[in-house]
Every structure is written in C-alpha cells, then in structure tokens.
Design a protein around this nucleic acid. Sequence first.
DNA 1: CAGCATGTTAAACGCTTGTTCAATCCCGTG
DNA 2: CACGGGATTGAACAAGCGTTTAACATGCTG
Lengths: 217, 217
Amino acid sequence: MLYMRSTQDDRTTRAVIRDEALRLFAERGPESVTVRQIAGAAGVSAGLVVHHFGSKDGLRQEVDQYVLAVFEAMLGELTGEGGQELLDPGAGSASLSEAFARHLPAGSPLPGYLRRLLLTGADTGRVLFRRLFELSRRTLDELVAAGTADPGRDPAVRAAVLLANDLAVFLLRDHLTDVLGTDPLSVDGMARWAPELLGVYAGGLNAAPQGEAPPPR
Amino acid sequence: MLYMRSTQDDRTTRAVIRDEALRLFAERGPESVTVRQIAGAAGVSAGLVVHHFGSKDGLRQEVDQYVLAVFEAMLGELTGEGGQELLDPGAGSASLSEAFARHLPAGSPLPGYLRRLLLTGADTGRVLFRRLFELSRRTLDELVAAGTADPGRDPAVRAAVLLANDLAVFLLRDHLTDVLGTDPLSVDGMARWAPELLGVYAGGLNAAPQGEAPPPR
DNA sequence: CAGCATGTTAAACGCTTGTTCAATCCCGTG
DNA sequence: CACGGGATTGAACAAGCGTTTAACATGCTG
C-alpha cells in the first residue's frame, strides 16, 4: 500500500485512527473534537474516517468498546492471577489505581477516557460503574471472610465508600498532582498515597501510623 | 415592559437567561448546549442572549463567576458560623456533601455545575480545588489540635485523602444513587452514607460499628 | 491480463453554529 | 409630547460541522 504510514508501524490505518481518536477524546471530550482533527492527527483525510467507522458516533462507540475491552482484560488479570490481591490492606496494593499504574504505559490516554466514560458516558458509564461496584462488594466480602474487615452496618454502602475512595484518586488525578506535586497514579505518588489511605483503613483517623518507615515504634 | 416574563417573576430577563444557562450547562456541558437552546429555555431570542452577555463564552464566564460566588457564600457560612463544624466526626456533619444538601434546594443545578467546573474547568477548576484543599488542610489541623485525628506520616496527603473521599460522593452522585437506591446527597442518603464513612474514620475498616443504630446524641 | 473489491482523497453539500444587523417596541425624562 | 435609549426580535451572515460523492490507486483473484 502506498498510502500506509511512512515509518514502520504494524498498526492498521484503521487502528491508527482509533488510537488518535481515543487520545483526543480523552483529552478534550468527543464533543470538542472534530472529525477533521482526528483525521489530521492520524495523517489521513476526513472522508476515510467516516469510511472506516460509518460516522463520528460510530467511531466513538468503537473507541468505547475498545477501551472497555482493554479494561476488562486488565481486571481479568487482576482478579484471576494469584487469587485476590485487590484492595488487600496487607499487600502493597491500593486497588484500581495501582492496577492502572502497573498495567498501562506512562502517558496512556486510557485513564482519562475511562474517567470521561464514568462521568459522562450515559449508559456505558452506568454499566462500568455497576461492574466496579459488584467487584467492590465481592472484595469486601472476601476481606470480611479473611477477618481483615468488618462488614459495617450497611455492607452495600461500605463497599460503595471503598469504591468511591478508590475512584476519587482517579477522577481527581490532575488536581491532586497539582497540589501534592506528585501524580498519585505514578509509582512515587502511590508510595505517598497508599500508606496514608491504608493507615486510615487500618486504624481510623486517630491512630498513629503503624507500619514504620523511619520510627521503630 | 411588555416583553417581561408573563407570570410574576422578580428576576431580570438577564437573570433568567443566566439561570437557564446554568441549568443546561450543568446538565449537558457548555459545548453541547447551543445559544438557541438557552434562548428557547429562557423564552427569548438568540440575539438577546448575545446582546446581554456579549458572546456565548461571555455567558459561560458569567455563569462561572456566579456559581463560584454562591459557593463561596456557602463556604463562608460554613466556616464562619458556630466555629468549625466541618468534617467533625463527632457532629453529624459529613463535610461538603452535607453542606450542599443543607444549603441548596432539592433539584439545584449547582452541584452538577461545580462538578463540571472541577473536572473540566481548566483554570477555574484548579483554583476551586486549591481552595478546597487548603480548607481540608486547615480542617485536619484543627482535628489534630482537638485530638480527634492524627496528622499521619504525610499531613498534606492525609488532607488530600479526606478531601478526595469527600468529593467522590459528589462526583459519583448519580452512579451511587443508581446502585444504592438512595441519593447520597439527600437527607436519607446521608443518613446511610455518613455513619459508614465516619465508622471507618473512627476505627478503621476492621472495627465493628460503635454508635448504635439511631445514636441518641 | 481483466476485473473487482478495498483504501484513499479532494471537493462539495446541507445543516447548524455563534454572531451581526436593522428595525421595532416601550419606558423614562426633559 | 417629543424623543432618545435600552430591551427585544427576526432575518441574514460567514464559518465550521458531519457526511456524501465521484474519482483514482492499489492489490488480489480468476
């Protein structure tokens, strides 16, 4: 093909368009991105975008599906591999946030897209959240079974609290980076964030930090 | 004026336009709302909207300023009235969420607009978040001074954790309503949410609930 | 080698957008 | 009572939007 990307790139032109759309959608939101901008970013004409995806909305839906699939794959690895390591205050894991940081490259647009999906993706967002909520409920159940957590008065609400706290890092990532000087989804950032959150989970707000770094108790 | 709103309404036409814009912006986002739609909702012509606010962006900025002003007023009442009642695990207050529920009418578009401001309002959102972060830091300081909380290893991060947890309810309101069956910003919803969160804050995830079902103050 | 499906482009189309403009209406003031 | 000025409208405008179309190049298949 003469029209294929110049330098070596094993992705199909179709995939390149999809990736650029994903990036731009995550950055500015689908409404603020034009077909011509996507085409420009992918190095093709506007007509080709429509030719491949039927319409702009068709492209958006395909990106939705793609992101969801990647996310599910991530979740699969997480819950499937070495038993439940999710949300376990004992292990170094701080759940979803850490999962993303570990499974995705540094500047990946995926977190941003998922954020937008969660906040403005009418139906897809609802499905996604329900999925996460069920996961959170099961995780809490496991923690209770293991004696690591109490179900509380209202286990559904407690699971929701845990999920919300987890997602908050995600949704507020940029602002947190701004005021703390560290991206909470980066390795350094999680090293600051996780102990503080797990400290509260372990003994409440009033308990002094326990797992020491400097002070030998 | 013959053109004034039919039924009694003490608001200026200008104010009506501003309010309708606020509502629509909060619902769908400024990019997805047209000047004609705003005009239609306010019962005026598109030209008049521009005449009053210069441009669509001018209108958006004015709504921004208006929302920020109302929010600041709310914050002022909160921090100023009976000393610090904010984030105090002893009182029934669950901070920002409760403040909104108490100071705003039921279907107010303000929470939705603030959410959007926080998540997509480039500079305004940053300023808003910094403001809230400073408030959270001061509140944590007071809790520490009162012996109700420990500063933790990294007080800035601990304050950020508290703020993020608080804002999460806000940002995920619709989804939480969906899975829990109760709006967490309503009176009923807070009655479910607050005890669970405060329970964790009081003794961590593993502690059994302490204050009984209806706590006799 | 003919032929056909596919990838691709440039140009054009129709529609919606934000904005401008001239005209009209009404009130307050001199 | 004239009149000037703000409020208000409907029509018009240019620009940008998503999409359609006709044409062309390319690689595969019989």
